[in-house]
Computed example of a mutant assay.
Amino acid sequence: MQKLYCRLSVAMALGIISAPSFATNGDQMLGVTAMQWGMAGAHTAAPQDAATVLTNPAGLADLSMQEFRADFGFGILNPPRKVNNQDSDSDYYLMPAGALAYRPNEKLTLGMGMAGLSGMGVDFPDTQPAPGFQSIVTTKQFYKIAPGFGYQVNDKLAVGAALNIDYQSLALATPMFQLPQNQVYGFGATFGLTYKPNPRFTIGASYTTKQEMDEFKWNTMAGTYGMTMDAPPIFSVGLAFKPMPGLLIEADIKHIAFSDVLDKVAFKTPAGTSQMNFGWSDQTVFAIGVQKQVNPKTTVRAGFNYGESPIGPEDVDSNIGSLAVTEAHLTLGLTRQLGQRLFTSLSYAHAFHNEVTSNSGSGNKIELEQNVVNLQMSYRF
Rank of each mutant, 00 (worst) to 15 (best):
E355M: 01
N364R: 04
I76G: 10
T109F: 09
F74M: 14
P243E: 06
Q66S: 13
D89M: 03
V356I: 10
L14K: 14
A101Y: 00
L60H: 01
I288F: 02
L248V: 15
S360E: 12
K107C: 08
D126A: 03
T344V: 15
G321M: 06
I76T: 09
Y348S: 01
V159P: 02
L334H: 02
L157G: 11
A328M: 11
I234Q: 05
Y151M: 07
L330E: 04
G188F: 08
K3P: 00
A222R: 12
K156Q: 15
L239G: 10
D155S: 14
Y225R: 06
V159W: 09
R7T: 14
L375V: 14
Y102F: 15
A158R: 15
F216C: 05
T326I: 08
A351P: 00
V184K: 09
A349Y: 00
N198P: 02
F286W: 14
Y195S: 05
V153T: 05
P57R: 02
T331R: 08
C6S: 13
A205K: 06
T326N: 13
A70S: 13
H255W: 15
M176P: 00
T224C: 08
P243V: 11
F142G: 07
L14F: 01
D315G: 00
I366P: 10
G160W: 10
E106R: 14
V159Q: 08
Q293A: 13
E355R: 01
K365V: 09
A205L: 01
V290Y: 10
G75Q: 06
L179V: 02
Y143Q: 05
P197W: 11
A173N: 14
P131Q: 06
T52P: 02
E215G: 05
A257E: 10
S318L: 03
G59T: 04
A146C: 09
T208L: 11
N78E: 01
S358Y: 06
T209E: 03
L163R: 04
T331G: 09
S358E: 07
A351F: 00
A11W: 04
A45G: 09
F133A: 12
Y143W: 14
A257W: 03
M244F: 09
T24M: 11
K156A: 12
D89L: 04
M112Q: 03
A158K: 12
Q36P: 00
F286K: 09
S206E: 01
R81F: 04
G160E: 09
M114R: 04
V53H: 03
K264C: 10
K3R: 14
I234M: 06
E367K: 12
L4Q: 04
T209W: 05
D49T: 10
M114F: 15
L63A: 08
T33A: 00
S64R: 12
G38W: 00
N85L: 04
R380G: 12
F278H: 15
Y185N: 07
Q337W: 05
M39Y: 00
D89I: 03
P80L: 02
M29D: 13
V153E: 06
G279T: 04
A130P: 02
G223P: 07
D62R: 13
A97Y: 13
T209P: 05
T174P: 06
Q134C: 10
S90H: 08
A99T: 04
F142C: 08
A251N: 13
D282A: 15
I249H: 01
D315N: 11
P47K: 06
Q178L: 12
V10Q: 14
F241A: 12
T127G: 08
N85P: 01
V265P: 04
Y143G: 03
